[in-house]
């Protein structure tokens, strides 16, 4: 356990990487999600604010990493997600995976970031240069309120924001 965590302060990537050191590992793959200045066609994102439902988020994050360890031939996996105010260029999320060989490390890293984005209860508020702000994936859905009653599956799912 303790393979998924939230941080309110900046992340020390050297220390993160060291958590995965293992004499049987011949490969280490990582993913860093960074705060960018545009999203879904909108420019002028000045900064972000991440909010998490931490008690459930940590449980779901740990479940995702346990799934990756069961599914891929890897030796270790870790993920850290930032919360609070972030500026353009800041690290928002880090995933690290160690494995005997690179194929499994890349695949598991991809699996973990994709699942974290879709399943862990974290919300992102963008603040724009024009003074407006909005909760990503929530405000866009509100525009389609008539199509998507809150208690029913609307069937549409937004893709994440990192390339």
């Amino acid at each position: 356990m303790k393979r998924f965590g939230f941080r309110r302060e900046s992340v020390d990537l050297v220390a993160c990487r060291a958590l995965l050191a293992d004499p049987v590992a011949g490969a280490y793959a990582s993913f860093e999600g960074w705060v960018r200045n545009h999203n879904e066609g909108r420019d002028g994102v000045l900064r972000l604010e991440y909010e998490g439902y931490e008690q459930l988020g940590v449980k779901e994050g740990e479940r995702i990493i346990a799934e990756a360890l069961a599914r891929f031939d890897i030796t270790g996996a870790q993920c850290i997600h930032r919360l609070g105010q972030l500026e353009i260029g800041d690290l928002a999320v880090w995933v690290g995976v160690s494995a005997a060989h690179r194929d499994a490390a890349f695949a598991a890293c991809r699996y973990i970031i994709d699942e974290v984005k879709h399943r862990v209860p974290i919300w992102k508020k963008e603040h724009y240069a024009d003074g407006n702000s909005g909760w990503v994936n929530c405000e866009a859905c509100a525009a389609h309120a008539g199509e998507a009653p809150p208690l029913q599956s609307s069937g549409h799912r937004h893709e994440g924001t990192h390339a």
Binding site: Y53, K59, E60, W135, A142, H144, L151, Q152
Partner: peptide, 18 residues
């Protein structure tokens, strides 16, 4: 409540159905 699309729900810090 504002319409936000598909809501999920948790009871006692676990996802559950409606």
């Amino acid at each position: 409540f504002p319409a936000v699309g598909r809501l999920k729900v948790a009871v006692n810090d676990e996802f559950c159905d409606w």
